[in-house]
Amino acid sequence: MKIVNLELRIKDNTLISTILIISFILYSIAIYLLINPANTLQGKDKFIPSILAFILALTTTYLYYRYRADKKLHRIWIDLVNKIVLGEKRIELPEEINNVSEVEVDLYRGIYRGEYRVSLNYRETENKYGRVLELREIKPYLFIALKRTRRNRVEYGEIYYNGMGYYFRYRGIKFLLLPLHVIKPKPRNTHLRVMHERDYGEAYIESRDNSLLVKLYYTREDSRELRLELTSETAPEYLLDIKLCSISESGNKECIIEFPVLADTHLIIIPINYRYVADSMFKPEEFIYKGELLDDKLIIGYKDLELKLTLDIPYARDVSVKTSW
């Protein structure tokens, strides 16, 4: 069992120094334009640049204090993580924590206008615990993380989690603990069949540790192709709808699809603070797994996921059949 380490993206003291210098210069300009009787600007000519300088100064000051607040919260996060004791299927939280609630969590971090934005909803259940948590029961969840390069950094940018978690307070801050258990891919049905007039397709699916062996059989008349996709009714569409295997001519095809399977249970611990979660880095090396990413996506847990076998029909609605996990 391991805790996924979080890092703040902005951690260069040079940046903070630059912000302070810019803020001081802009404040100085604003004061000079407003109170210095020697300057030649009058009326609106004096008022507009001074207000602009004042607004810019306030903006840089806000960014600085926002950064300082994130750093303070990050220090509390580090202190919390250092005090947690991990067992094989057991978590001991710090002694200051004596009331833990089980919660249903829906977390999404995506990009909006070039910056990360966070949507976080959680609802407490009737289950309450002390500071010792036993993780012997594996509850369904879905975790998706999209790997991307942003500003010369490789990270898991967009994040989606839906499942059970734990809620508690530490040093006045609300936290969520999200356990990512080891779950291997195993669809409920291993034989899927679709038909449309004279077009016909079948898929036989065999689970093999962290992979699926898929055999497609296809009779083509009017359709374009037969394909097997990974979809979900709840996760953001662009994070899924992954084509796993396809065939466009009559015959058969065999595909081996590797899924990422965690080597051990991973724990994500985040404060209920939208800005902090948006500004935190989820580094790929923090997630230890075997197998391969699917379309640059780390997909584990499989809650609400579906395998969909589809006949692509031109000028008509596609014919498909699904199976859950």
Score class of each variant (00 low, 15 high):
residue 66 R to T: 15
residue 66 R to I: 13
residue 66 R to W: 09
residue 66 R to G: 12
residue 66 R to S: 14
residue 67 Y to N: 15
residue 67 Y to F: 13
residue 67 Y to W: 11
residue 67 Y to H: 07
residue 67 Y to R: 14
residue 68 R to Y: 12
residue 68 R to N: 08
residue 68 R to P: 12
residue 68 R to A: 04
residue 68 R to V: 09
residue 69 A to M: 14
residue 69 A to I: 06
residue 69 A to Q: 15
residue 69 A to L: 13
residue 69 A to W: 09
residue 69 A to H: 15
residue 69 A to V: 13
residue 69 A to P: 14
residue 69 A to S: 15
residue 69 A to N: 15
residue 70 D to S: 05
residue 70 D to W: 02
residue 70 D to A: 09
residue 70 D to V: 05
residue 70 D to Q: 08
residue 70 D to L: 10
residue 71 K to A: 15
residue 71 K to V: 15
residue 72 K to L: 15
residue 72 K to C: 11
residue 72 K to T: 03
residue 72 K to Y: 14
residue 73 L to H: 01
residue 73 L to V: 13
residue 73 L to S: 07
residue 74 H to Q: 11
residue 74 H to C: 02
residue 74 H to S: 03
residue 74 H to D: 09
residue 74 H to T: 06
residue 74 H to L: 13
residue 75 R to G: 11
residue 75 R to L: 13
residue 75 R to I: 07
residue 76 I to H: 02
residue 76 I to W: 05
residue 76 I to L: 12
residue 77 W to E: 01
residue 77 W to N: 03
residue 77 W to Q: 03
residue 78 I to H: 13
residue 79 D to R: 10
residue 79 D to M: 11
residue 79 D to E: 12
residue 79 D to W: 10
residue 79 D to Q: 09
residue 79 D to T: 13
residue 79 D to V: 14
residue 79 D to P: 02
residue 80 L to C: 13
residue 80 L to E: 02
residue 80 L to P: 01
residue 80 L to A: 05
residue 80 L to Y: 00
residue 80 L to W: 01
residue 81 V to I: 02
residue 81 V to F: 07
residue 81 V to S: 07
residue 81 V to K: 01
residue 81 V to L: 01
residue 81 V to C: 09
residue 81 V to G: 02
residue 81 V to M: 11
residue 82 N to F: 10
residue 82 N to L: 06
residue 82 N to H: 08
residue 82 N to I: 07
residue 82 N to M: 14
residue 82 N to Q: 11
residue 82 N to S: 15
residue 83 K to Y: 07
residue 83 K to A: 06
residue 83 K to L: 06
residue 84 I to S: 00
residue 84 I to F: 00
residue 84 I to R: 03
residue 85 V to W: 06
residue 85 V to M: 12
residue 85 V to G: 04
residue 85 V to E: 00
residue 85 V to C: 01
residue 86 L to E: 00
residue 86 L to D: 00
residue 87 G to T: 05
residue 87 G to R: 03
residue 87 G to M: 04
residue 87 G to N: 01
residue 87 G to D: 04
residue 87 G to P: 01
residue 88 E to D: 10
residue 88 E to C: 08
residue 88 E to P: 04
residue 88 E to Q: 07
residue 88 E to G: 01
residue 88 E to A: 11
residue 88 E to W: 08
residue 88 E to N: 11
residue 88 E to L: 07
residue 88 E to M: 14
residue 89 K to P: 04
residue 89 K to S: 04
residue 89 K to D: 02
residue 90 R to C: 04
residue 90 R to H: 05
residue 91 I to W: 04
residue 91 I to L: 09
residue 91 I to T: 00
residue 92 E to R: 02
residue 92 E to M: 03
residue 92 E to H: 15
residue 92 E to L: 01
residue 92 E to N: 14
residue 92 E to D: 09
residue 92 E to F: 03
residue 93 L to G: 02
residue 93 L to N: 06
residue 93 L to A: 05
residue 93 L to I: 03
residue 93 L to F: 00
residue 94 P to Y: 08
residue 94 P to S: 04
residue 94 P to E: 05
residue 94 P to A: 00
residue 94 P to R: 11
residue 94 P to K: 12
residue 95 E to A: 05
residue 95 E to P: 03
residue 95 E to Y: 15
residue 96 E to H: 10
residue 96 E to S: 13
residue 96 E to D: 15
residue 96 E to R: 04
residue 96 E to T: 10
